[in-house]
């Protein structure tokens, strides 16, 4: 379903299927698909839309404070005013400007996304590359561990950790970071495994290149596009989990959370529609942007990983 994604969203579904070891299941990735083999994210209309949405969400988050100021909690007008020229998204029950809060809520979502992706990315690449390049007991051990982390229900764990240790953004980032890397790690491992067998790696080895060198120069670079797709999945999942926590009243009170805004709006569903519309829409735009871009990246990636694309990898 949706909010809180323990696994793989649409864009990455076929990549995920591959990661699960079902190479045959996904002819997409290996067979040539000339009509989809496009060089960049912007080559598909979906990708263009994704970039537009994502850029506007990120732009609003980064540049918005210049316009709306950096005091999202300040009461600036009468409470519960409908949208007007002065307050384009209206004001909430404490007289705060909803636009200002949405801008700062998007910032929080971005912090979560970037933080989680950074932590999960590092862990995933380390575990995946190690496992993929050391078939045998190390691979076995790492994959057991990955499966273990994979079955942990992340939202359940997040609820508990936040309820017990306090609702801090840093707690959420840390928790989601150390539990969200499994799919990416499997993808990285699968790609590493298959690349090891490939001609150009063999060739490099025959030239006397060391294991580490090969990993870094070839495998890591080849794996990157696929890993990016998985990490985009990770990012939208993390954003939705944080919003879900905010919705059940477990958001960090010192920052604005889009989920908390939606939760607060719940009390005003009948009387102030703008309180639920704008935070929800902001969340939708951000997630949709990430997913569409991930989707396009997946297409671009699978094209690049195809027989021809592989040779031209940077």
């Amino acid at each position: 379903m949706r909010p809180v994604t323990d696994a793989v969203p649409a864009p990455a579904a076929d990549v995920a299927a591959r990661a699960a070891g079902v190479r045959a299941a996904s002819p997409t990735s290996r067979r040539g698909r000339p009509e989809l083999r496009r060089p960049a994210v912007l080559a598909t209309p979906g990708g263009v839309l994704g970039v537009v949405l994502l850029t506007s969400a990120v732009g609003l988050a980064l540049l918005g404070p210049v316009v709306v100021g950096d005091r999202p909690f300040a009461s600036v007008a009468a409470p519960l005013q409908a949208p007007s020229a002065a307050h384009v998204m209206g004001t909430d029950d404490l007289g705060r400007d909803v636009l200002t809060m949405v801008v700062h809520g998007l910032r929080t979502s971005l912090v979560i996304a970037v933080g989680v992706v950074a932590i999960a990315g590092v862990i995933a690449v380390c575990v995946g590359a190690l496992a993929g390049s050391h078939p045998g007991s190390l691979d076995d051990l790492l994959m057991r561990g990955t499966e273990l982390v994979q079955v942990v229900p992340r939202f359940f764990l997040a609820v508990v950790v936040v309820a017990l240790f306090g609702a801090r953004v840093s707690n959420v980032v840390l928790l989601l970071g150390v539990t969200s890397w499994t799919w990416t790690a499997r993808v990285v491992r699968a790609e590493t495994l298959s690349l090891r067998q490939r001609a150009f790696v063999e060739a490099a080895r025959s030239f006397g290149a060391g294991q580490t060198y090969i990993l870094r120069r070839h495998i890591a670079v080849s794996v990157l596009p696929t890993a990016l797709v998985m990490l985009s999945v990770c990012a939208s999942g993390a954003v939705l989990i944080e919003a879900g926590l905010g919705f059940v009243g477990l958001g960090d009170p010192d920052v604005v959370s889009l989920g908390s805004l939606a939760s607060n709006a719940q009390r005003f569903l009948r009387s102030a529609w703008w309180l639920t519309l704008f935070p929800g829409a902001a969340l939708l735009i951000l997630i949709l942007g990430i997913n569409l871009v991930g989707d396009a990246l997946g297409d671009a990636g699978s094209a690049r990983l195809g027989p021809v694309g592989l040779g031209s990898t940077r």
Partner: peptide, 23 residues
């Protein structure tokens, strides 16, 4: 949390920096 948000805002007016801790 609503109490916290109002306290933070009103004390902020006179120069306090209030950090909310929800437990």
């Amino acid at each position: 949390s609503k109490y916290g948000e109002l306290v933070r805002e009103q004390l902020g007016e006179v120069g306090f920096d209030v950090e909310l801790v929800a437990l």
